[in-house]
């Protein structure tokens, strides 16, 4: 599929997805979009991810194929790089934490170097790390901030997040930094796919689709917060009714809310069937989550089977005379 089509098709798909709840709510299907779709999406998300993980877990890790990114453990006098080349499970845990929370492998792209005179410069690849980190962390914080709609009383950490996130106290309602950051990061992640020829070449429709979906989700959310207000008391009433499993749909929440909710549901439902499963997959990656101690501790391959080998007897049988000629000891004279 050409690059243009790879972008166009998902874009059209997302635009259609935006129209669906708008029309649906007009047709009086608000219960469907406010209750049925979210529950369904939630179930698909959980069920799907669970199936995916179980599916992965059903395949064993027959060999210990750690990628080592630093000095391994050998002698006491050789400095062991514990977190890039873990030897114990504890060290693996730290490596995974660094990987999952700080994107350490991507960070490796960051190389400070002296180039063309004394000016310190960084490799361009740091942007990918920064963009990815900014996007993922913003997304997480935004998700957690939304907990104010799902709990009563609102837990303290949400309050803390909100005050940190709204630190600059810009505008009313307060501008959340993550809102700005996530749009910037997402734009960057999108643009690099379009602008960098290598990336344009490798990008598939399934790379653009989640990007557009996220744009839809985030922009509708930002729109609701800052521009086209909806009645968030009612939003919370709906959210609370959903989480206590007694769904009621208050009248008169703006259509934009339904777009936002629908985007979220599509994203959740799409999750298990797409590359987005990297969220769960990263924890299972055998090159990262295994200790590099395979000479220290035997790793067992559960499907190991006997193979045909060329035994010494067969070998000696073939070469006995020649072996004797040069004085090599033989088993059978």
């Amino acid at each position: 599929m050409s690059a243009q089509k790879s972008i166009l098709y998902p874009l059209v798909a997302v635009l259609v997805l935006i129209l669906i709840p708008v029309i649906g709510v007009k047709l009086g299907l608000s219960y469907f979009f406010a209750v049925v779709v979210p529950y369904a999406a939630f179930v698909i998300f959980f069920g799907g991810i669970l199936c995916k993980i179980v599916n992965w877990a059903r395949s064993p890790v027959p060999f210990r194929i750690t990628t080592t990114c630093g000095q391994g453990k050998s002698f006491d006098w050789v400095k062991h790089n514990k977190f890039d080349n873990p030897f114990t499970n504890k060290q693996v845990f730290v490596r995974m934490v660094l990987e999952v929370l700080c994107f350490r492998s991507l960070f490796r792209n960051l190389k400070m170097e002296l180039r063309d005179g004394p000016k310190l410069t960084y490799g361009s690849a740091k942007w990918l790390w920064l963009g990815a980190l900014a996007f993922h962390w913003s997304f997480l914080i935004i998700l957690l901030r939304h907990m104010r709609f799902f709990a009563q009383p609102v837990p303290g950490f949400v309050d803390m997040l909100q005050s940190v996130d709204g630190f600059f106290e810009l505008g009313v309602p307060q501008l959340f930094l993550t809102d700005a950051v996530i749009v910037a990061a997402l734009t960057y992640l999108f643009l690099r796919r379009v602008v960098v020829p290598q990336l344009r070449y490798i990008s598939l429709p399934s790379d653009y689709f989640p990007l557009f979906l996220l744009f839809g989700l985030i922009l509708s959310g930002i729109g609701m917060r800052y521009f086209f207000k909806v009645d968030i008391i009612k939003v919370k009433e709906l959210a609370m009714s959903l989480v206590i499993l007694k769904p009621t749909v208050p009248e008169g929440i703006g259509a934009l809310f339904y777009v936002h909710l629908f985007m979220l549901c599509v994203l959740f439902a799409y999750f298990p069937f797409s590359k987005l499963t990297h969220m769960a997959g990263v924890f299972l990656s055998p090159t990262r989550n295994l200790a590099n101690n395979s000479r220290y501790k035997r790793h067992v391959n559960p499907w190991d089977y006997p193979v045909k080998v060329h035994t010494y007897e067969e070998y000696e049988e073939e070469f006995r005379e020649k072996m004797k000629e040069v004085g090599l000891p033989v088993e059978k004279e």
Partner: peptide
């Protein structure tokens, strides 16, 4: 037989790193 293979088929996001 290989979780690595199955996983690596699924989770690449084509980030280009």
């Amino acid at each position: 037989k290989f979780r690595s293979f199955k996983l690596f088929m699924d989770i690449c996001v084509r980030c280009g790193a």
